[in-house]
């Protein structure tokens, strides 16, 4: 770890004022950043601790939720409204990491944890374009069991590790951002980037931009939602494939369907092709299979992760079936 200065902010303006340029980073729970700093992969010379920002969860007049950036993952998953109305979000958070890590991790930090793979961590022994642009990617041609099957590029095939973000993608969450040039609202689905030829940049945020809150739109009570994560062990492991789904069936027809996929891409993947096939169609297994097939038709797996295509297809169908049967 290289030396750095440390300060605390209690509000957004205070945090943004302390951003001294590209070498300052905001610090949430530290569970990703401190670990990467120890490996000299992240090298900020100043940290601004933003765990003193809002940790409140408030209902909006139209029945949505505003979640402060400093809300801890455990607190969000334990909130009565989240448990009752947004089970997909509650279950996604609880499927991630360990209880210890969820107690530390903040909403802002979870969203902005690095898209990464184990070669990215292995600074001493592996080439990685995300660490050093142009150096090459040892995952391609290496051990790529955990890597992307959708939206990858020849420069990087890493996946975004967040479970929470997969649910936020399906829920059409909006991320509230503030920075030197003012505030803006970004759909979570527009926040993370695909790697293209710049895998070193994970999101569209500027270095000074701070996440202040996440807004969940009002959510129809008629919809059912859940999250299913498939992994190599039944707890405390990253997703091979995960599915966040929201389904509303009326008289045998699909009134609304929204699907997020995890473990398959450089960003939380919104399955819009599948959704287009589902909406208005019959809530049958055949329709679910057609939808999953349409989304995965674009998959470009490698030898090690070709299994993910079939695994994702089956998991999407199984989750939709579950949601239909509990309507």
């Amino acid at each position: 770890m290289i030396p750095f200065s440390y300060s605390r902010a209690t509000d957004a303006n205070g945090a943004i004022e302390q951003v001294a340029g590209n070498h300052t980073k905001y610090l949430g729970g530290g569970t990703n950043l401190v670990d990467l700093m120890r490996e000299n992969i992240e090298r900020p010379t100043a940290l601004v601790d933003v765990t003193g920002l809002s940790n409140e969860i408030t209902e909006t007049p139209d029945g949505g939720l505003i979640i402060g950036a400093a809300v801890r993952n455990t607190a969000l998953a334990s909130h009565p409204i989240v448990r009752a109305r947004y089970p997909v979000l509650c279950r996604a958070i609880l499927a991630g990491a360990s209880a210890q890590i969820r107690n530390m991790a903040t909403v802002g930090g979870n969203i902005l944890q690095r898209t990464r793979c184990s070669y990215f961590y292995d600074a001493a022994g592996s080439n990685c374009n995300k660490r050093t642009l142009g150096e090459g990617c040892d995952a391609i041609g290496g051990f790529a069991r955990y890597h992307a099957i959708l939206g990858a590029s020849p420069s990087c095939i890493a996946t975004h590790p967040s479970d929470m973000c997969v649910a936020l993608a399906a829920l059409d969450a909006v991320v509230l951002v503030d920075g030197i040039h003012g505030e803006r609202r970004l759909a979570l689905n527009d926040l993370h980037r695909l790697p293209g030829d710049r895998p070193d940049v994970d999101t569209v945020l500027e270095p000074d931009e701070l996440i202040t809150a996440v807004e969940l739109p009002q959510f129809s009570l008629a919809s059912r939602s859940t999250y299913r994560k498939v992994r190599d062990r039944s707890s405390y492991a990253f997703a091979l494939v995960s599915v966040a789904a929201i389904l509303n069936v009326k008289d045998g027809l699909i009134a609304d369907a929204r699907i997020g996929l995890g473990g398959v891409a450089h960003k939380p993947w919104r399955a819009r092709k599948a959704e287009a096939i589902l909406r208005g169609g019959p809530a049958t297994i055949a329709q679910f299979e057609a939808a999953a097939g349409a989304e995965l038709a674009d998959a470009q797996p490698l030898q090690d992760n070709v299994f993910k295509v079939e695994l994702a297809r089956r998991t999407i169908v199984a989750v939709l079936e579950d949601l239909r049967d509990t309507q």
């Binding site: 440390y6 610090l27 729970g29 530290g30 569970t31 401190v34 670990d35 120890r38 601790d49 765990t51 455990t74 990491a97 360990s98 209880a99 210890q100 890590i101 107690n103 530390m104």
Partner: peptide, 27 residues
Amino acid sequence: CDHGQCGACTVIVDGRRLNACLTLAIM
């Protein structure tokens, strides 16, 4: 492990357990 992967460093801070290896003392 010093990476949040094993839990050997688990302590309780303000009533919540956490991995002491993933958090800075100054925090």
